[in-house]
Design a protein around this nucleic acid. Sequence first.
DNA 1: TCTGGGGTCCTAGGACCC
DNA 2: TCTGGGGTCCTAGGACCC
Length: 437
Amino acid sequence: MSSEFITLHSWPRAILHLDADAFFASCEQAIHPELKGKPVITGKERGIVAAASYEAKARGVTRGVRLSDVKKICPDAVILPSDYETYSLFSLRMFAIIRRFTPDVEEYSIDEAFADLTGLRRNFHGPYSMIARKMQETVEKELGITVSIGVSLSKVLAKAGSKHKKPSGITMMPGREIHHYLGKLPIESVWGIGPNTAAFLRKFGINTAFDFARKDETFVAKHLSKPYHEVWHELNGRSVYPVMTESKSSYQSISKTRTFTPPSKDEPFVLAQLSKNLENACIKARRYNLAATRLIVFLRKQDFTDSGAELKLTCPTAHPSALFNLLREGFDHIFRSNTLYRQTGVVLAGLIAEASVQYTLFDDTAQIEKMSKVYDAVDILSEKFGKYTVRHAVSLPTKIQSQHEGERGDVPQRKQELFKGENNRQRLGLPVLNVMV
DNA sequence: TCTGGGGTCCTAGGACCC
DNA sequence: TCTGGGGTCCTAGGACCC
């Protein structure tokens, strides 16, 4: 039984969840007006559907379907590579719009946000539903994409609401009506309840969110751990998850992985993939001024089994040059010849603030300082000329495969209009210079 | 949804300490 | 080198999310 204390926030609260409809595909349609009304699919680079427009969904296309199959169900589908740079710009605009209504906004993911509307009716001289509608209209008018919104007493309930009617829906779930919605919500569709827990709960005859919400607390305390106990409170309209307004400024871990097709047993090639993973993870760590204390290296075989090694660092760092030997050590430990690998991965873990790193007498601080300067320069060059301006030599055997990275076509006029204020080189699709060192 | 990429938190159990 | 009770730190692994 969990004796952990669960914080109940003062209630009732009015929590809003906003979920963009088919976000990636909608962004593409917004900047390519000629695609409106057509089945649009993103995910070309992966070979599976990342997002499908509602026109494509209507034809039976769902997430994760192989593109080869898409062509059979929906031969006229427009298939595009995912363009995260552009989607991020839409995302930022969307969050900015929500903030016009309340400062209490949580950027939950690229296409979702929570907002705390509690007490705002007075300001807006109208009910919460009106605030939701205005928000929805503003996003649609200014960005050309539709969103669905749920408003209820907690985050879990608001999430259930935004999913209830899509696309372009608004679902208000006041306390009196919660049971009506939860009775139709399968238990595995509740935010925070995955397939494992759902299967467990179904053994007790709990098939819907309503069944779960109605269970008494002794059952919950006896059989389930803290996260599910919290979900149970939230389903009953008692808010325990606060809307987190601070933006993410740090990380517990940073990982970079790469899947390659076809699988490979070529040692230099696989090592080069890993080395590139390491460089990319380090770039991100340095951007947040973090240093790793542990390095995890793993390879995924063709049969989807993993083997990995964890190395402890004697001195925390985010410099690839200081980590290559360890990477190599881990790699040699797990790599087997004549084995086909499909994916490599690196995790920088035990991250601590760079400023708090303590050096010992045995560390070559002069050398470390020198490397810091080198990487400062590398980071500046990369910012100016593109992500892969400077690479380590070990990473080179992947160059042939990554020729298309950073490539940009013409920037659509609609995108220029929308984002003309933001003159980041890559965002505007200016040529990216690749320098091999 | 035979499987891409990037994260988080929680729990149990062992090591070690008084 | 048996016997109690209680605490902390760390790690592996599970489960979940978009």
